[in-house]
């Protein structure tokens, strides 16, 4: 009885006349294990349909929220920068050469320079004092000169 029904449905199915419900009946029948032997060739087809229903799209889609860039803001920023410029520029003009790290008065500059030079020469003298210790080394080497005497005597011994 069931088989009769299935065969009828299959015929309708092939003619494209089945409703979705009837197709579901067919799918259920063929996914069971009790398929009549002469209908077995349909089984892979319905199995395939069922398997393919499961396939999923796994890739991510980069959804970019489009930032519609508003050019108005550029003008706002430009105005702000300009205002800052106007606000700070007088200060720079007033401060003359002080910001450049030099002295404005020549006398003051001379004083400073001589101070610096004096400091440098001070340090330099300290350096030469420590170098004085090198004389000691010289003395040591002259003492080593006596070794030559020993060499002379050994050469005499080896000659004999």
């Amino acid at each position: 009885m069931v088989l009769d029904n299935i065969e009828k449905l299959l015929k309708k199915y092939e003619n494209g006349e089945t409703t979705l419900k009837e197709e579901q009946v067919l799918k259920n029948y063929f996914s069971s294990d009790t398929v009549a032997p002469h209908l077995e060739m349909y089984k892979p087809m319905f199995d395939y349909f069922l398997v393919n229903q499961q396939e999923q799209f796994t890739k991510d889609v980069p959804l970019k929220t489009k930032n519609i860039f508003n050019y108005k803001w550029i003008s706002v920023a430009a105005v702000a920068v300009l205002m800052m410029g106007f606000y700070f520029s007088p200060i720079i003009a007033n401060s003359d050469c002080n910001d450049l790290g030099t002295y404005c008065e020549p006398e003051q500059a001379l004083e400073e320079v001589s101070k610096q030079l004096a400091m440098i020469s001070n340090h330099f003298n300290k350096g030469t004092q420590t170098v004085g210790y090198l004389n000691e080394v010289d003395k040591g080497t002259s003492a080593l000169g006596y070794l030559n005497e020993i060499e002379n005597t050994t050469s005499i011994i080896f000659k004999n």
Partner: peptide
């Protein structure tokens, strides 16, 4: 037209399946 095309497709599949079967 959809039904006709579908029916053709299904018949074609069935034919090939029976052959291989």
């Amino acid at each position: 037209a959809v039904r006709v095309t579908l029916s053709r497709a299904r018949k074609a599949i069935r034919e090939k399946l029976t052959k291989t079967h």
